[in-house]
Design a protein around this nucleic acid. Structure first.
Lengths: 109, 109
DNA sequence: TCTAATAGTTAGTTATCACTAACCGTTAGT
DNA sequence: ACTAACGGTTAGTGATAACTAACTATTAGA
């Protein structure tokens, strides 16, 4: 991955199903690595690697507590992806509108 | 990809840099396949395959005009991803808030 | 101090998926 | 009918990245 932009990192990170599973585990609140790993079908080291990717994308943040690493959802990455999607919103609605108008005309025939 | 849910399809689709490049080309308006392909570093068949993935994710829609296939941004896929991200918003803000409070306490020392 | 628990790293393997080449089908124009 | 333009499909290949196994480092507790 030679992604420079933040949204590249974030969308790449969320593109993997295992990483989404990890991300979704944090939906209910912060968790340590062992807690994140349990129930998942991959080994703990694999989880560690995914956590690194998610962290670089600023989708999660980490706080050290003794020997434990506690991970939480980070709003920064979410915000970046949101902003990216919003770029396309106007164009999408415009397309939708013209399509709707066409359909209407079509129906009048 | 054995993804059932719409947001799985959408996030998987946006996870690839070439597909993002295609998607971003449609930001300014609808385009035919040849127009999408020009400037990209992959062959036209590759573009066709990516368009299929984006279409299944409802991120783009297609309209046939003679021999041309005109592609546009589809708001449906955008909306699905947005809703997915929103699921994490409250939790993310909560984490952010407690972190902010902790930092404040830390600074008071 | 010794041990257990937690988790990050790295080398090597495997599996996935993006890509090209070759092909086919359809429509528009001459 | 013939040709050109457009674009979707498929088989096979190559590159990427997800994964495991083995190892190391750090901290907590007995």
């Amino acid at each position: 991955m030679i992604a420079a932009k933040q949204y590249d990192l974030a969308l790449n990170a969320l593109g993997d199903p295992t990483r989404r599973a990890i991300f979704e585990k944090l939906e209910k609140g912060p968790l340590s690595v062992v807690h994140i790993a349990e129930g998942l079908s991959v080994t703990r080291p694999a989880v560690s690697q995914h956590l690194k990717v998610l962290r670089e994308a600023k989708l999660i943040s980490m706080e050290q507590q003794g020997t434990r690493s506690i991970y939480s959802i980070d709003p920064e990455g979410l915000q970046v992806v949101r902003a990216y999607l919003d770029r396309f919103w106007d164009e999408a609605l415009h397309n939708f509108k013209t399509l709707a108008e066409k359909t209407e005309i079509e129906n009048q025939k």
